[in-house]
């Protein structure tokens, strides 16, 4: 041994978990929803997802090369953004439109602010809102599930829109399995719950945000619907709530890291969703709710900083000093 050996600050051992591993787990958790989408809407759903993932990777690589920054494709976060954005699009969306939205999400929302960890809003959500504002018709033309397509009806309203106008929503089994119109990654409640459960079991996400978010919407709808449990349950199982609560609102970068910050953040998400769904002119409000709360995250984190072990309150400190 003649040469010098490596010197670093401690600790000299590290847990095995990496950023890439975390992102890979999120992708794994999204697989059931993709399988359900293929079953419900056909292979085109997979094509849209792949187009979005591909665009996300190319945009990330391209913009980072342009900025002369090291490539970050390896952390898989771009793939997660692509998948999540794809999942909140209708299956019939033009492919160029899906690609445009993804490029906006990666380039403008994520990389312009410094890349992973620095973006203030969830790129997938921002990309979806960008598309919704730019192409409202294409983004709200909901193809019917393959099983429900007839000769004269290819598209139809989503259950949320039906609920809003007071109509009869699909039955329970159809809601759980996703046999109704809507964004192709959002319809199958069972697949999303399965994925969410996977993330919870692997401790990738904390249960606080999904529980409080969904809980707020459920309780609010129960009260607003005249104590109608069935109405509240339908509100929870449809629209983007499950995808949003388990996969988007829990995004590390744009949600508070403190436990109480998470509670307030999720309450806010639920509250804004309620307001938009009940009184807004749109049937769905999950993405706007998450975007708004993303912006409030730094503030929430600051006011909910956990108490430092052994810290003394200012008033106590002052009285102690007076004593001595």
């Amino acid at each position: 041994m003649s040469k010098l050996v490596t010197v670093t600050a401690p600790p000299h051992i590290r847990a095995a978990e990496t950023s890439t591993g975390v992102m890979l787990d999120v992708l794994i958790a999204l697989v059931p929803a993709q399988i359900a989408a293929v079953w419900i809407f056909g292979w085109r759903s997979l094509i849209v997802t792949l187009v979005c993932i591909g665009t996300a990777l190319v945009s990330e690589w391209g913009i980072r090369s342009l900025f002369k920054k090291p490539s970050t494709l390896g952390d898989l976060s771009a793939a997660v953004t692509g998948t999540l954005l794809a999942f909140c699009l209708p299956v019939g969306v033009p492919l160029w439109m899906a690609a445009l939205g993804t490029a906006f999400a990666i380039i403008v929302v994520k990389q312009f602010f410094g890349g992973l960890g620095h973006n203030f809003a969830n790129p997938a959500i921002a990309g979806r809102i960008f598309l919704l504002i730019s192409f409202p018709i294409a983004l709200t033309t909901w193809d019917l599930p393959k099983a429900a397509v007839t000769t004269d009806a290819l598209t139809g309203a989503t259950p949320l829109a039906i609920l809003k106008t007071g109509g009869d929503a699909p039955d329970w089994l159809a809601l759980l399995l996703g046999q109704h119109g809507g964004s192709y990654g959002e319809v199958c409640a069972a697949a999303l719950l399965l994925g969410g459960l996977y993330l919870l079991c692997k401790r990738i996400i904390s249960p606080i945000i999904p529980l409080v978010f969904i809980g707020t919407v459920a309780v609010g709808m129960f009260l607003a619907g005249g104590l109608d449990a069935a109405f509240a349950a339908r509100q929870v199982l449809t629209g983007g709530l499950l995808l949003g609560a388990f996969f988007m609102a829990t995004d590390y970068v744009t949600s508070p890291m403190t436990p109480w910050g998470k509670v307030l953040y999720a309450l806010g998400c639920g509250g804004v969703t309620l307001v938009i769904r009940l009184w807004g002119n749109m049937p769905e409000g999950v993405s706007y709710a998450i975007l708004l709360m993303n912006i409030a995250t730094p503030l929430l984190e600051r006011v909910t900083q956990p108490k430092i072990f052994g810290s003394v309150k200012k008033s106590q400190k002052a009285s102690k000093e007076q004593e001595s």
């Binding site: 000299h12 051992i13 590290r14 990496t18 950023s19 975390v22 970050t72 390896g74 952390d75 410094g114 890349g115 992973l116 960890g117 620095h118 590390y252 970068v253 744009t254 508070p256 890291m257 403190t258 956990p306």
Partner: peptide, 15 residues
């Protein structure tokens, strides 16, 4: 025992 250093994910595991 080393990992590639990447941007902080803001995951809160340290806290």
């Amino acid at each position: 025992f080393v990992k590639p250093e990447r941007n902080c994910l803001h995951c809160g595991r340290c806290n």
